[in-house]
Design a protein around this nucleic acid. Structure first.
Lengths: 348, 348
DNA sequence: GTGCTTCATGTAACCGGTTACATCAAGAGC
DNA sequence: GCTCTTGATGTAACCGGTTACATGAAGCAC
């Protein structure tokens, strides 16, 4: 009597069951053209030997790995854990695995990573917010299905998913306006940052359309910038009733500075941020902010990628419009003004 | 002149360079037994064709995938992003990739996951804190190198890494006692969770040894449980001067509830958590907590696993004792013995 | 010249699966 | 009886790499 052999191959099973490898393969993969008794016998033998198919070999001959490569810039914080969560849930639902690859900022490591993926994955989800992506894309073979997440603008059409910062900023301004604010101060992010630029643009558009006063102060995404903005405004005795910071960090800085200055939030000045970092729920007053559903973002990328892998045609640039998460730092809409998440159509 | 072919194989390169596949392999893998001019020529041709080796095929013939399978129970929160971060950094340093596999609680999915790993990875890092892992281990072939993280007790010796929750809880209680606390409330985690059980045990031991009052409230690791605990305590007018929650989430919930109830932290009630999620630094007052260096924990698991893969012998059960990270939510130890009793909140 | 060593290169087997095609037995139709 | 069809099973090629071994040319000693 044969003992369990830890790494039995299909040929071991075939020998032990006195059949050919083809029959074993058929028995285990549920092919119909095999006699039921034989199928059961083979399965029993396979069980007895503790046979588990070698996925690598299977992948090679099927030319399919059922694996999705995930290329991300870094792994800090909750954004990534949420993103991975959404991708994983969706991938496992569709029968795919996730192979993770982090390029720690260095572009050449990104290229190496991309190469290492060849023959290991069926497709890629690539997140590369750095501007240097063009080199990366040059190494992304056309034959490799891939979905881009929040990448900087680039040559050519590719299936892509982006956060609609413009729409998010518009939604925030509309929310502020609905709460009665008329004189908005926007604390902008770094000029070179694409997200910051778009948020500023949305703010400008919405204020112009709604006839609101807008003043823009330069910031840098750090908490201090929010504090400095308030200090400066108070020093010159400026009149304003809302602060919209281009990210939550700066909004928190502004909030703290307002508190110290004895200005009540949201009664005298409303404050809103962007990103929905976990902290926003916990400070007091809780911060109104805008963000997308990150897990859904990841899941959607996986769905589209699997579509591509299955041969679908897809060149679309899809946008995810952030929704406003209204908390204590802003006044709620007074009347029946709409506060729907605004989905913008194709921008240019 | 030949064009770039997207999925050139080694045989394409061989034909194009008018050499054998063996030479191509040697040229690209840096073998010494090849004429330098020929090597350069082959490399040039490979470049021109855009040849990237097929990792799957390579793995099969080398019987090595340079990939580590990571089996985790779920992906919530920052613990996992930190863990993955540590593992990823170390793995990429050692030339390994990470294949992620989440078993959402269901044990049979864990077994399926394990099988799917065969022939895809060289070894596994398995984290299975809640389920009765014995079934899982039964499906973990001896031939598959694996390192266990924080698994429930089980048969036999395996290379393993565990957080010493008992020691961590003891350290927290000692820190609270050193700050003058005498009436401790422990908000416990889920009863079925091994971490929660051990933290409770450490709390019990330390309180008994130090002669502190201890009251245990059942929780579930969610923020709400902390809030509910405070609500219940206040409703009955209980006397207590410290909350030790079995994880940070619940501690944060408690902190917020205390704030809302107008109870000062840490003057009237000190609060401590467990895990050191990044959030704890950001809230106000910053939360005292206990934790291991999670990234290091993950990195160490990878190091040991790679050792196993390389044939080292290793059956050790290694412990990581958490340290207390004292922040604003607890009083710092005063010099030798007594704390000023006036500040201590007997609030009834 | 022959014989021996050394070294670059090629040939073909192998990793462990899948599957097109060949084979063969049984049953149907005449 | 013979032929044709049908369906189960086996044989061997293939996926794309690596590499043991074979080959053959060059170099050297005699």
């Amino acid at each position: 009597m044969q003992h369990v052999m830890p790494n039995a191959t299909i040929r071991d099973v075939a020998r032990e069951a006195a059949v050919s490898v083809a029959s074993v393969s058929r028995a285990l993969n549920g092919a119909t053209n095999i006699r039921p008794e034989l199928r059961d016998h083979i399965r029993a033998v396979a069980d007895r030997l503790g046979y588990v198919p070698h996925a690598g070999a299977r992948n090679l001959s099927l030319a399919r790995s059922s694996t999705i490569g995930v290329v991300v810039p870094d792994l800090h914080g909750e954004f990534f854990s949420e993103l991975m969560r959404g991708m994983d849930r969706q991938a496992s639902e569709l029968g795919f695995h996730l192979l993770l690859m982090v390029m720690h900022g260095e572009a050449d490591r990104g290229v190496t990573a991309l190469h290492a993926m060849r023959g290991r994955v069926d497709g890629l989800v690539v997140m590369a917010p750095q501007i240097t992506s063009d080199e990366l894309f040059a190494h992304l073979p056309k034959s490799m299905p891939s979905v881009l997440l929040n990448c900087a603008p680039h040559e050519g059409n590719r299936p892509e998913l982006r956060v609609d910062n413009v729409a998010g900023a518009v939604a925030v301004i509309e929310h502020l306006a609905a709460g009665g604010c008329r004189r908005i101060v926007h604390v902008a992010g770094p000029e070179a940052n694409i997200d910051a630029q778009e948020r500023l643009r949305g703010t400008r558009e919405a204020c112009a359309r709604l006839g609101l006063d807008l003043r823009v102060l330069q910031g840098d995404f750090n908490e201090d910038a929010g504090t400095r903005a308030i200090t400066a405004l108070e020093a010159e005795g400026a009149a304003y009733d809302a602060i919209f910071a281009a990210n939550d960090n700066m909004a928190v800085g502004a909030l703290m500075a307002l508190k110290r200055a004895g200005i009540t939030v949201p009664e005298q000045v409303a404050v809103a941020g962007f990103d929905n970092i976990p902290l926003t729920r916990l400070i007091s007053p809780a911060l109104t902010t805008a963000s997308i559903d990150i897990a859904e973002f990841g899941a959607r990328a996986v769905v589209r990628l699997v579509g591509l892998i299955d041969g679908e045609r897809d060149d679309a640039l899809e946008w995810r419009a952030p929704i406003v998460i209204a908390r204590e730092s802003t006044r709620q809409p007074t009347d029946n003004t709409t506060e729907n998440p605004i989905r913008r159509g194709d921008r240019e």
